[in-house]
């Protein structure tokens, strides 16, 4: 069994806003093995992005990591100084965002930005860095890299910008990459290109990937293990095949049944209600107001994540009493 690269335990990241404390991440625990592709699935407000930002320790104000442990290569990142973190960011852990323009500076050429990243983390000369820049741009499939590196971000299309953002994230060959909805703003055909690219690069560089998305299709294609988040907490962790075949948490099951599929038309099952407000989240299990199986205990007690089979964790009071249908048996 592969070693653990990242281990998150009881992470809490809260945002102290005018309206109240937004408990965006409220006690999340999971781990990631070396070379693994892990999916973080959830809807808006599930805490998936904040989890990634917390690992990199770049939670925007007024957010704060209030509790928990983030172990990366057996070192607690929450104990690191800001300076140590700067070294880790980019060189060991990198992130790409949904909107690639937000991570590229519009006043510098693409080449300059990449070169700066390389030079910040590696002791190389300017010419070497330049050579590396061209190399990495070619790796991410930017045609005509030598000329295009002299262009500014606004001269690139969305898909090309995302390639550049990936190049920048991978410039120093990190061991862990967070991809936060990297294709949500892209067209389907471009999305397929970028997903393919990520898969290839992952194999080539042997890094671990955390794929953050709400798209069950992308998750099914890209990952080997999945963490399902809802309202700042973990609902279920399982191998991808297992999760799609036999979801054990009512939310996971409902989510799978609510997504239309290209290869079959089915009656879409509706998850009633709306995404909860994280300032006053529902008591007990946060999914209980929308859950078909909710009992009194679900309103009162917070369910703990328990391992029901090897490698399959569920946080649900009722998992033993309910039988859920998998996606296939419709």
């Amino acid at each position: 069994m592969a070693e653990t690269l990242l281990n998150i335990e009881g992470l809490k990241t809260h945002f102290f806003t005018e309206a109240g404390i937004v408990k965006a991440v409220d006690g999340i625990s999971f781990n990631l093995k070396k070379g693994e592709s892990l999916g973080l699935v959830g809807e808006s407000g599930s805490g998936k992005t904040v989890t990634a930002l917390s690992v990199l320790r770049i939670v925007p104000k007024p957010g704060k990591i209030t509790d928990g442990k983030i172990e990366f290569n057996d070192e607690n990142l929450l104990k690191k100084t800001e300076k140590e973190m700067q070294k880790i960011r980019g060189s060991k852990i990198a992130i790409i965002f949904q909107d690639p323009s937000s991570s590229l500076n519009p006043v510098y050429t693409v080449g300059t930005q990449l070169r700066d990243v390389i030079m910040a983390h590696q002791t190389v000369s300017k010419t070497e860095a330049r050579k590396k820049t061209i190399e990495i741009l070619e790796v991410v499939g930017l045609p005509d890299a030598e000329t295009r590196m002299r262009e500014y971000p606004h001269q690139f299309s969305g898909g090309m910008k995302q390639r550049v953002a990936i190049a920048r994230a991978l410039a120093c060959e990190p061991t862990l990459l967070f991809a936060d909805e990297p294709t949500t703003n892209l067209d389907v055909t471009i999305q397929a290109q970028v997903l393919n690219l990520l898969n290839d690069l992952k194999k080539k560089l042997g890094m671990s990937l955390v794929m953050i998305t709400h798209d069950m299709g992308i998750i099914a294609e890209m990952t080997t293990r999945i963490v399902v988040l809802y309202a700042g907490r973990v609902c279920e962790i399982a191998e991808t095949h297992d999760l799609f075949e036999r979801p054990r948490h009512p939310y996971t099951e409902a989510l799978l049944a609510a997504v239309p599929r290209l290869d079959m038309r089915k009656t879409l099952r509706v998850i009633p209600g709306n995404i909860p407000n994280l300032i006053e989240p529902p008591s007990g299990c946060r999914f209980h107001p929308r859950c078909n199986y909710a009992k009194q205990t679900c309103k009162e007690d917070i369910p703990v994540l328990e391992e029901i089979e090897s490698g399959h964790f569920v946080a649900c009071h009722e998992w033993q009493n309910i039988t859920l249908k998998g996606e296939r048996s419709h």
Binding site: V270, P272, G273, N274, P289, R290
Partner: peptide, 10 residues
């Protein structure tokens, strides 16, 4: 209807 359950709660 779909939203009845939470509707009433609200």
């Amino acid at each position: 209807m779909a939203s009845n359950k939470t509707g009433q709660k609200k």
